Amino acid sequence: MDIHIDEDTCIGAGQCALTAPEVFTQDDDGYSTVRPGKEDGGGSALVREAARACPVGAVRVTERVG
């Protein structure tokens, strides 16, 4: 899976980091980021739930093709 955070949409609500803290964190400005090395979701079953929890839809999870 691939995880993308739309930086222009993110408001820093932190729902993704609360839902899947092993994959998401917040930067110094309070905006969500994917933890280094976890760009593929790190096997977390909570990544999709974290994307659904984002109040502005800034987190997108897609399946890798190929």
Rank of each mutant, 00 (worst) to 15 (best):
T33K: 04
E63R: 15
V59E: 01
R60V: 14
V23F: 01
A50D: 04
R60F: 03
T19C: 11
R64G: 07
G42F: 05
G41E: 08
Q26G: 10
R48W: 08
C54I: 00
G43C: 13
A58Q: 06
E7K: 15
G30E: 14
S44L: 11
R60W: 08
E63S: 14
G43V: 04
F24R: 00
V34L: 08
S44T: 09
V47Q: 05
V34Q: 04
V65I: 13
D28H: 04
G57R: 02
A20P: 06
R60D: 13
D40Q: 07
P36W: 06
F24L: 03
G66T: 09
Q15F: 14
C16T: 10
T62N: 07
P21D: 06
R52E: 15
D27W: 06
A45N: 04
E7F: 06
L46W: 05
G37W: 03
I11W: 13
V47K: 08
P36T: 10
L46A: 13
V23K: 00
A53W: 03
E39A: 11
V23Y: 00
C10K: 01
R60N: 12
A17F: 03
I5P: 11
G30Y: 12
V61H: 00
E49W: 01
P21M: 06
E22A: 11
D28M: 03
A58T: 08
R60L: 09
T25L: 05
A53S: 15
G37Q: 04
G41R: 02
D29Y: 11
D2F: 13
A13H: 12
T25N: 04
D28W: 08
V65Y: 07
C10R: 00
C16H: 02
V23H: 01
Y31A: 07
Y31I: 05
P36N: 08
P36C: 12
V23I: 14
D8R: 11
C16M: 09
G30F: 12
Y31L: 15
C10F: 02
Y31P: 01
I11A: 12
A58F: 07
E49N: 14
S32L: 02
C54T: 01
E49C: 00
S44C: 07
P55S: 10
G41I: 05
E39Y: 06
T19F: 10
A17Q: 02
A20F: 03
Q15C: 14
A50G: 05
L18Y: 07
F24T: 00
R64H: 11
K38F: 13
D27T: 14
C54Y: 00
F24E: 00
V47I: 12
V61W: 02
P36E: 12
E22M: 08
I3P: 00
G37R: 06
A17C: 04
A20D: 01
R64T: 11
C10G: 13
V65L: 05
K38R: 15
R35C: 04
A17D: 02
V34M: 06
A17K: 07
D2W: 01
R35E: 10
P55F: 03
V61T: 09
R48L: 04
A45T: 10
E7P: 06
T62A: 10
L46P: 00
A13M: 12
A20K: 00
E7L: 09
R60M: 11
G14W: 04
A20H: 00
V65R: 14
V56F: 13
I5F: 10
V65K: 15
G41C: 08
A17N: 02
